[in-house]
Amino acid sequence: MSESPAVQFDRVSVRYGQVTALRDFSLDVAAGETVALLGPSGSGKSTALKALAGFVRPTAGRVLLNGQDVTGAPPHKRGLGVVVQQYALFPHLTVADNIAFGLRARRVRRADSARRVEEMLDLVGMDHYGRRYPRELSGGQQQRVAIARALAIRPPVLLLDEPLSALDAQLRADMLDELRQLRDELPDVAMLYVTHDQTEALTLAHRIAVMREAELLDLDTAQGLYRQPPSEFTAAFLGGANLLPAIVREVNGTVEVGTVTLTATAPGPLTPGTRVRLAVRPHTIGVRTDGPGLAAILTGLQWRGASYRLTCMIDGLDEPGGLSVHADVPSIDGLPQVGSPVRVRLPEHGAAVVAKTGAGTPTEGATDVVPQGLAGVA
């Protein structure tokens, strides 16, 4: 008999009156696996976490931990570690006492509790901070203490709800590295990580569950979703892909975008003559003042330090008013001026065919259906 998943959502729905916050949500998380719930605000990701933690009661479906139905169990009976975005440390307790709080609630012997606190302080790099109070710590240090407190009880599952959103950019990057290292040092702990930040999801998660309008839209490995996004929404939300109309010329993925021919990846054979939508990442697009490519007008230029984000309006792609695309190019001299004509160069390889978000239907105006069951391809 196969081992039960560490976490299992079985067709879970959560409704508040007439509002559906989570709809028919099913997901399995294995022991030692990190899954990110990624989506915009209101997509249902935090509601799923709260249903697992026991903070909200599902109106339909079941929540299971290691094969045991805990749908009706109170939070303190589930044995989960929880880290929230505002840390929720007790201001009147020292760092050591904050970490020991869950252990004392479980009546762990004082000597064992002290030893466990020392282990957790060492794990999160806070060895010499046990006697300090939360107000004496930086935001990153407080977050480490919150993680140590959650892990002190040796939970089989660690829940993290936007744990880095309150940190500045540099602290967020540092904490993300530490979370990844922590993940590797805890091979038996399943992690469910809620975020709206694609960088966090791509960096930390083994798999990503993309949420949209209270539902699970797409699920695959981080690389799979990035390289072969199953839907338009995921392509645009995860990595900010441009969505370009194309016509299939050969079953092997040869397609035409206007006057440009290129090779796109697809989850299955394509039908020649079919209109499809391509996901093309901004960093793969080149912009020149002359030469081959699609004729366009440069409508926007934004400096981003190491690169520029160029916005170009391409005419003649059967899009009303033209199609706006983004290109990320190196920060070099000689960039064209806004308003000037340019040539947009698409990559010969690297574009991916995606399905129209919603019902797996073809791109609007298509003559045939884009292949169904678009699972990500690494």
Rank of each mutant, 00 (worst) to 15 (best):
M120Q: 12
M120H: 13
M120C: 14
L123M: 15
L123W: 15
L123P: 15
D127G: 09
H128K: 07
Y129C: 07
G130V: 11
R131W: 10
R131E: 15
Y133I: 08
P134I: 02
E136D: 11
E136S: 07
L137K: 04
S138E: 06
S138Q: 03
G139F: 11
G139H: 08
G140T: 09
Q142K: 09
Q142L: 01
Q142W: 00
Q143F: 11
V145C: 03
A146T: 01
I147P: 13
A148M: 08
R149P: 01
R149T: 06
R149W: 05
A150W: 00
L151N: 02
R154A: 13
R154K: 15
R154C: 10
P155F: 02
P155A: 00
P156R: 09
V157G: 08
L158C: 04
L158W: 14
L159F: 03
L160R: 00
L160A: 01
L160K: 00
E162V: 13
P163R: 03
S165K: 08
Q170C: 02
D174H: 15
D174K: 07
M175W: 13
L176F: 08
L176W: 07
D177Y: 11
E178W: 00
L179H: 15
Q181A: 09
L182Q: 07
D184T: 10
V189N: 01
M191S: 07
Y193E: 02
V194A: 02
D197M: 06
D197K: 01
T199M: 07
E200S: 10
E200D: 06
A201H: 05
A201R: 06
L202A: 04
L202M: 10
L202R: 02
T203D: 09
T203P: 09
T203F: 12
L204H: 05
L204I: 13
L204A: 13
A205Y: 01
R207K: 15
R207I: 14
I208L: 00
V210K: 06
V210I: 05
M211L: 14
M211G: 06
R212D: 10
E213M: 04
A214Q: 07
E215Q: 12
E215M: 13
E215D: 09
L216E: 03
L216Y: 04
L216D: 08
D218H: 01
D218E: 12
L219A: 07
D220G: 14
D220F: 10
D220P: 03
D220K: 03
A222L: 11
Q223M: 12
Q223Y: 05
G224I: 12
L225C: 09
L225V: 05
L225T: 01
R227I: 11
Q228I: 08
Q228L: 08
P229M: 13
P229G: 11
P229W: 04
P230S: 05
P230V: 02
P230I: 02
F233R: 02
A235S: 06
A236I: 10
A236C: 06
L238D: 12
L238G: 07
G239H: 08
G239Q: 04
G239V: 01
G239R: 06
G239M: 05
G240N: 11
N242Q: 09
L244H: 03
L244T: 06
P245H: 01
I247P: 01
E250F: 03
E250L: 14
V251F: 02
V251S: 12
N252G: 08
N252E: 10
G253M: 05
T254P: 01
T254M: 09
V255M: 04
E256G: 05
E256C: 13
